[in-house]
Every structure is written in C-alpha cells, then in structure tokens.
C-alpha cells in the first residue's frame, strides 16, 4: 500500500494514503489504523483517521519522527490491497419529517420528488463513515444519492436539536449534540450519540444505515436511551 508520511510538529506523523474521497482510500485508512493499534508501538498515543489520511500522534519523550515513520511504512507494506477491513454496519433509526425534520418538504421540493421518495432514497443505502469531527460523534458520511444534494439553508439555525439528521450540499450527517448549523434537517434519531464515557455505536471505517421509524417508535427508543444513561 502506498504511503506518504509528513511531519506534524514534534508529536505527530501524517500518513497520507490517497488524494480523493473514495471507498478504497477510506478502507486503506481504516486498515492502517487497525494495524497501528495492533502493533502496540511504544510512544504512540493516539490516531485520528480522516478522508484520506491517518494522523498518528506520539509522545516525543518515548518516540521520534524517524522511528514512527519507519514503523508506519513497515505496517503499510504488510497491508495487501485486498485486505481492507470492511467495518461494521450500524442501524440508525430516524423519524423523518414533521417536527422531527422540518426541512423535509424543502428538500423534496428542491429535488422535485415526494417526501416519501426522499425518505426512500435516504434510507435506501449504506453510508461509509470516513471520519468523525466538527463535534464529538459527528460522522462525515460518503455516498449520498445525487438527487438529494441540497444547498445549506440561507440562514443557519442557532439551535439544532441533538440527533438531527440533515443534508448539507453533497453530504448527509447526524448532529450528536445541540449545535448551531446550516444543514437542511430531514429527520431525527432517538439514539443518544453524545454520552461521554460511553462508547459511540460507530467509528470511522464503519457504515451507517438509516432505518425509518414513526413517532411512537421514536418515543419508545428515546425512553430506553434515557434509561440507559440514568
């Protein structure tokens, strides 16, 4: 596997594994991250996967750039092209439209489709999680159907409720916590995705599938989630 390694100050090496957002590059990033964790290299403190790169942070008291770079090259060399890690597929229940997704009519209008058709297209595929960022647990997803591409709202909202599922330009994603934002909101998940100390149900390298639910199911799952955190 080809790898280009660049220094990040005194504490990091950025392994660049491609130049475009693609399933193949995403799978390489996930494979290298797994290999780094399995290798238990002394002094490596954490890894941050992104679309086409893996940031590997080290403690400069216990490791140095040349040593970490050599390890990364060795690990990348051992990863066969076909040996990419598939990741898990995680179901995320979403109640679409109405008070849960106020912009669903606008997205449907923009696409020239019915609201039902938008829901069918949005929930009809799996989306690879390339990275988490912007907010804790916010997934950068690939693979939105082109027909659903919708420009961001002209006036961003100052408060988007936690769990909102939206479309911003060519991307779709979930707001794990209340936040300002300009995406078009099409639904909401009852899953509690911002819970420090509890593992997220997904990580970079996994895939997400949105599963339509109704308001009653939303309330049932939301109640269970609240109990799980009590």
């Amino acid at each position: 596997m080809e790898i280009d390694i660049r220094p990040v100050g005194a504490c990091g090496a950025l392994a660049v594994l491609g130049s475009q957002i693609s399933e193949t590059t995403g799978a390489r990033v996930a494979a290298l991250e797994r290999a780094v964790h399995r290798a238990h290299i002394a002094g490596i403190t954490e890894t941050v996967p992104a679309f086409a790169s893996l940031l590997v942070r080290y403690d400069p008291l216990r490791a140095d750039y040349d040593g970490v770079s050599a390890e990364l090259r060795r690990l990348a060399g051992d990863i066969a092209a076909g040996n990419a890690h598939a990741g898990r597929t995680v179901d995320v229940p979403v109640c679409y439209g109405g008070a849960y997704g106020e912009d669903l009519p606008a997205v449907a209008r923009h696409a020239g489709l019915s609201e039902e058709e938008v829901i069918r297209l949005h929930s009809g595929r799996t989306y690879r999680i390339y990275m988490l960022g912007f907010l804790p647990g916010f997934p950068y997803l690939g693979g939105l159907d082109e027909r659903l591409f919708t420009p961001r709202r002209e006036t961003p909202r100052t408060r988007i409720p936690a769990g909102s599922v939206g479309i911003g330009g060519q991307q779709t994603g979930i707001y794990p916590m209340e936040s300002p934002g300009g995406w078009q909101l099409i639904g909401r998940t009852p899953l509690c995705l911002f819970a420090p100390g509890r593992d997220l149900p997904y990580a970079a390298g996994d895939s997400i599938r949105f599963v339509p639910i109704d308001a009653r199911e939303f309330e049932q799952i939301a109640a269970r989630e609240r109990e799980g955190h009590a």
Partner: peptide, 10 residues
C-alpha cells in the same frame, strides 16, 4: 484540502 487531523500548534 481534504479535511485531516489537527494538533495544538497546527
């Protein structure tokens, strides 16, 4: 650029 990891000092 394609978004990637940031550290303190970037």
């Amino acid at each position: 650029i394609l978004s990637d990891g940031i550290v303190e000092g970037s």
